[in-house]
């Protein structure tokens, strides 16, 4: 019996059909998905902070509106993704507690600080760009609710990326001080953006099983290469350089050669040693704890209301 279910599951995945919430699935598949989707949801929610850092100081009202709307979209992405985990039996409150207790991770990129307004543009262009490279294949991932959430998220991320790039284009057409600000920001974000694809394939522990389950569709190194290939012409058009002396076109391969990020720094930040790790979690914890009485009140009110209706 169990074998039949497993066979049917494997057939569904292999034939590129979707697994839906009520379908049987192996425990490992369910756990892996909850972990991956929750990590993605947490990344959206923590990712509100570095950009939110500039809402109050945005240098024009138009940029303020764009930034506020973008950070709001990230909250929306977090919401869809937590909902997708709930279709697998997880609970948003429980996942939030795991996040603030450091038992689940989020994208390490958000442990880097946003130091100038150019960072808002560079995050849109490179960080959202890298996220799109990672996420577009997930629109075809085997779990239906995740795949559908990712379609919407990728569309909105593409929009954010264009807004980020447009901000940088505008800044590059401004004063020398602004151009310097953009280049400085690119210098600080380029390597962390490359790290977003995860460690080199040889060191990545989760890749093989996830590829078989069609939860993941390309390897870290394949996606990283694709990202570099796509980003170079955009950098040239923008008039900025990437801080990598090894970065050059390889005629033979038809792709760019590039250097490796500092993986020691990557692991240091992943393990909690980044500039902002503690701050990001403390911020999220404070919002969650300060809001507890509000959530309790809403629940108490709803309960009283339900009782009244039941009595009537």
């Amino acid at each position: 019996m169990a074998d039949d279910l497993e066979l049917r599951f494997e057939r569904t995945v292999r034939s590129e059909s979707r697994i839906e919430p009520r379908d049987w699935m192996p425990d490992g598949y369910r756990k892996t998905l909850i972990r991956q989707i929750a990590q993605h949801a947490h990344s959206e929610i923590i990712g509100m902070q570095p950009e939110g850092n500039w809402i109050s100081r945005a240098p024009s009202l138009r940029r303020k509106a764009i930034l506020l709307a973008k950070v709001q979209d990230e909250a929306g992405h977090g919401l869809y993704l937590y909902s997708a985990t709930e279709t697998l039996g997880a609970d948003r409150e429980d996942l939030t507690v795991k996040l603030i207790e450091g038992r689940q991770k989020y994208s390490s990129i958000f442990n880097y600080p946003t130091l100038t307004f150019a960072d808002v543009g560079v995050i849109g262009w490179l960080v959202d760009g890298a996220a799109i490279c990672n996420q577009v294949p997930l629109c075809r991932t085997s779990y239906g609710p995740y795949a559908r959430a990712m379609i919407r998220i990728c569309k909105e991320e593409s929009f954010h990326q264009r807004q980020g790039y447009e901000l940088l284009m505008t800044m590059m057409s401004g004063t020398q001080q602004q151009r310097d600000m953009v280049q400085d920001s690119v210098n600080r974000w380029w390597w962390p953006a490359l790290m977003m694809f995860g460690p080199p394939d040889a060191e990545s522990t989760n890749t093989e099983q996830s590829m078989a389950w069609r939860i993941k569709r390309d390897t870290n190194d394949e996606l990283r290469q694709k990202f570099v290939n796509m980003s170079m012409p955009q950098a040239e058009k923008l008039g900025v350089t990437f801080p990598d002396p090894e970065l050059k076109w390889n005629e033979e391969r038809g792709e760019y050669d590039f250097g490796q990020p500092d993986w020691d720094e990557f692991w240091q930040v992943v393990k909690g040693g980044g500039v902002c790790n503690e701050q990001r979690i403390a911020h999220r914890r404070k919002a969650h704890e300060d809001g507890a009485w509000v959530r309790d009140a809403a629940a108490a009110h709803a309960q009283k209301h339900a009782r009244k209706e039941g009595a009537a």
């Binding site: 950070v71 937590y82 809001g291 509000v294």
Partner: peptide, 29 residues
Amino acid sequence: LSEWCSRAPELEEDIALANIALDLLGQAR
């Protein structure tokens, strides 16, 4: 109102307060 962004008691409320802040910013502009 936009000071609440990423600090609201619940995600839905974060979105709602940002929305109100955006409406008012639009009126201001």
